[in-house]
Design a protein around this nucleic acid. Structure first.
Length: 509
RNA sequence: GGUCCGUUGGUCAAUCGGUUAAGACGCUUCCCUUUCACGGAAGAAUGAGGGGUUCGAUUCCCCUACGGACUACCA
């Protein structure tokens, strides 16, 4: 087995890519990198009716944001097998369809939608599986039942037709799945799937097999929803004479809705209370906006890490993995077989780990946007220091502003619980003295402020325990936060005095 | 309904016939701390059910139950 590893992620541009799709792409990517192979992006847009403008671009941007960089394909500079969009490969499929028809592995079918409906209803009524198969096809309008000259006439007259695969009546199709082992399905359970549609486009099944063959794909790593049609694909490889270069299959477990029922889907949007999309997505048809991981303050490295762990684990207790470590550790045989429910808490925890290890300077870039959005002007140095002081308290970057806005805007309200509990007749006196002492200082820093504070306390016979929390509230308005004296030092002498003064004249029990 | 796939704490999960059945998230308690966090310590909580095979089953087989996927001229 020294075939070069080549894998692909082949999404359909029918809307935003949800995180399950991103995970599939990620596993392909990790597998390719692990084996020094190639990872390519192919756009499967054979269904023109479901095309959604902007979706293709969204998919590419989402992958790039997470850090899944392809070697070839749409959005990644194409490559030796261009084009990578199936709609643009349209002329390539016909010859393979003809090859199958000529060899007797496929046939023309002229049934209308009404014909098919009628057939399905008839079979349903007699309690039989309603599928177009070795039995029922003999009662339909196709090149197996129509006289040869009639078929020729219809074809020449330009009547609409599809090409269906001609499955054997009863035959076991066995194939090996890298994750699940041997899977066996009998053709009696399958139906004569359409390979070539009346609009001249191949269906997924045909296009997928042809393109994977032409692009020299060595492993097909895709979602479990494809497992039932894998035998059809195996048969196509066989009938086209490509069985010796047929890729290996690996069907990934699905990502499930956290509340229990069903697989995660695009339509879940924000309903679940967490983003299902990597980036914010606005549905062009409905105008509905769904939130994205990026916009919610997730870091791309964290998303890659947490997605990797949804259905895979390294077998060790290490959970935080860099991209390189994931590439190194990833193997298909450690992918689990059962679907995983997305856990918001765990996702949050992953992000927190990454936020904590993000340099203050980088966090500051994000916080700066919030500062500017509020028409405030602070130096980068100041914003960076704020980040250093509060970053361990947050899980998401956007919380920097949410919990740290008092570094930029003076409090107008004071935590009531603390005021009720601690504010008494002596409080104004302590504040007054503290203000006096700070004013008298030339310099101002954490240490000198603390000295002044202690002096003000002892002068009024107030204990540290009684007053410290109150001091915090006077300065920031809220009960929790970083060490008080460091915080004050960052505020600077002027702001500290202003806030103390404001508290003195505004807080009343 | 049919076919296929799956089933270890609430969630993600390790174990590849012999363990006190890891670890993480979440939860509870305690310690640290002016506070909020962080960090540290401890705790509650798991093999769907029933049959086999075996000296021994979470692990292998069968049945049942449950969950999921598929069942389009969609992917």
């Amino acid at each position: 087995m020294d075939r070069r590893v080549r894998v692909r992620f082949a999404p359909s541009p029918t809307g935003a890519l949800h995180i399950g799709g991103v995970r599939t792409a990620l596993y392909n990517y990790l597998f390719a990198k692990k084996h020094g192979g190639d990872f390519l992006i192919r756009i499967e847009d054979t269904d023109q009716t479901r095309y959604v403008p902007g979706a293709e671009n969204y998919i590419i941007e989402a992958l790039k944001w997470v850090g899944i960089i392809a070697d070839e394909g749409i959005g990644f500079g194409d490559g030796p097998h261009a084009p990578y969009r199936q709609s643009e490969r349209k002329p390539m499929y016909l010859q393979y369809v003809m090859q199958l028809v000529d060899a007797g592995y496929a046939y023309y079918a002229f049934d209308t939608a009404e014909d098919l409906d009628a057939m399905r209803e008839r079979l349903k009524a007699s309690n039989v599986d309603s599928k177009y198969d070795a039995i029922t096809r003999m009662a339909m309008k196709n090149s197996l039942t129509l006289p040869e000259d009639e078929v020729k006439r219809r074809l020449e007259a330009g009547e609409p037709y599809v090409v269906r695969i001609k499955l054997p009546k009863k035959e076991d199709v066995k194939f090996h799945d890298e994750i699940r082992g041997w899977v066996n399905i009998n053709t009696a359970q399958m139906d004569d799937k359409v390979l070539f549609k009346s609009d001249g486009m191949p269906t997924y099944h045909l296009a997928n097999v042809v393109d994977d063959y032409l692009m020299n794909i060595s492993h097909v790593i895709r979602g479990e929803e494809w497992l039932p049609s894998a035998p059809l694909h195996v048969l196509l490889y066989r009938y086209l004479g490509w069985e010796d270069v047929m890729p290996k299959f690996a069907h990934l477990p699905l990502l499930l809705k956290p509340e229990g029922n069903g697989k995660l889907s695009k339509r879940d949007g924000d309903r679940l209370g967490f983003p299902v999309f990597p980036l914010e997505w606005k549905d062009p048809a409905t105008g509905e906006v769904s939130s994205g991981y990026r916009e919610s303050g997730y870091l791309p490295e964290a998303v890659m890490n947490l997605l990797a762990f949804l259905g895979w684990n390294p077998g060790t207790t290490q959970e935080i993995f860099s991209r390189e470590e994931l590439v190194e550790a990833f193997t298909l045989d450690r992918v689990s077989k059962s679907g995983a429910k997305f856990d918001q808490n765990k996702a949050k925890w992953f992000n927190q780990q990454y936020v904590r290890h993000t340099p203050d300077k980088v966090l500051a870039e994000s916080l700066k946007k919030d500062v500017l959005a509020h028409n405030l002007n602070y130096s980068e140095e100041y914003i960076t220091k704020v980040c250093g002081l509060i970053k361990e308290k947050i899980s998401f970057i956007k919380e920097l502003w949410e919990i740290g806005s008092y570094f930029f805007v003076a409090p107008t309200q004071y935590d009531e619980a603390v005021i009720t509990k601690r504010w008494n007749d002596k409080s104004p006196l302590v504040l007054q003295d503290l203000i006096q002492l700070v004013r008298g200082n030339q310099a101002f820093d954490a240490a000198s402020f603390e000295v002044n504070y202690n002096e003000a306390l002892s002068k009024n016979g107030v204990s540290n325990k009684e007053f410290l929390q109150l001091l915090r509230v006077c300065l920031s308005g809220v009960a929790g936060g970083p060490p008080i004296f460091e915080m004050a030092q960052l505020f600077g002498k002027e702001v500290t005095l202003e806030r103390l003064q404001h508290a003195l004249s505004n807080i009343k029990k």
